Computed example of a mutant assay.
Amino acid sequence: MSGWTSFTRDLLEQMPLILAGLLKTVQLAGLISISGLLLGIVVFYLTLSKSHIVRNTTNAYISFFIGMPLIVLLFLMYYGLPSWGVRLSPFTVAFIGFTFNVAAYNAAYLKTAFNGLDKSQLEAARAQGFNPLQIFRYITLPQVMRLSIPALTNQVIANLKDSSIAFLIQYTEFFARVQELAATNFQFFKAYLLAALIYLALVSAIVLFARAIERRYFIPV
Rank of each mutant, 00 (worst) to 15 (best):
A29N: 08
T47V: 09
Q128H: 10
E123Q: 09
A94S: 14
A108V: 03
K50M: 11
F91Q: 13
A195N: 01
Y192L: 11
S204H: 10
N56V: 06
L152H: 01
K119Q: 15
V42Y: 05
I219P: 04
I169V: 10
V43I: 15
I53T: 14
L181Y: 03
L37H: 07
N59H: 14
A182N: 06
S51C: 07
G80E: 12
A210H: 01
R9C: 05
H52V: 10
A166K: 01
F98E: 11
T112M: 11
V42T: 09
T153Q: 08
P150H: 01
L22T: 05
V86S: 08
I41R: 00
L122E: 15
T140W: 00
L168M: 10
L160D: 07
A107H: 05
Y78D: 05
F100R: 02
S204Y: 13
P150G: 04
F75Q: 09
A201W: 00
T172Q: 12
L28G: 01
I165T: 00
A210S: 15
T5H: 13
A124L: 11
V43Q: 10
G40H: 06
S148P: 04
S204F: 14
T47A: 11
S204A: 15
F44C: 05
F209E: 10
L133H: 13
L147Y: 08
L194C: 03
L48Q: 15
R137W: 05
K190N: 11
A212P: 00
L168I: 03
F130P: 00
L81H: 05
F209P: 02
L28I: 03
I157F: 04
L141R: 04
Q170I: 05
P69Y: 08
R211M: 12
R55E: 15
M145P: 04
R126V: 07
Y171Q: 01
I18F: 06
E180K: 02
S163D: 01
Q170K: 06
R177G: 01
N106A: 13
L28H: 05
R126S: 13
P82H: 08
I169R: 05
A176T: 00
E123A: 04
L110A: 10
D118Q: 09
V54T: 15
S33R: 00
I213W: 07
I213T: 02
R177Y: 02
W84C: 11
G67F: 03
L122T: 06
T47C: 13
S120T: 13
N106S: 13
T57C: 15
N106M: 12
I41V: 14
K190S: 13
A60M: 11
L122P: 02
S6I: 12
D10S: 14
T140H: 00
F175Y: 12
E214N: 04
F130S: 05
S35N: 05
F174C: 00
F188H: 12
L22S: 09
I34D: 08
V221P: 07
D118I: 04
L19G: 09
P220F: 05
N56D: 13
I71Q: 14
Y192P: 00
K50E: 15
D10P: 01
E13M: 14
T172W: 02
A29Y: 10
S63E: 14
T184N: 13
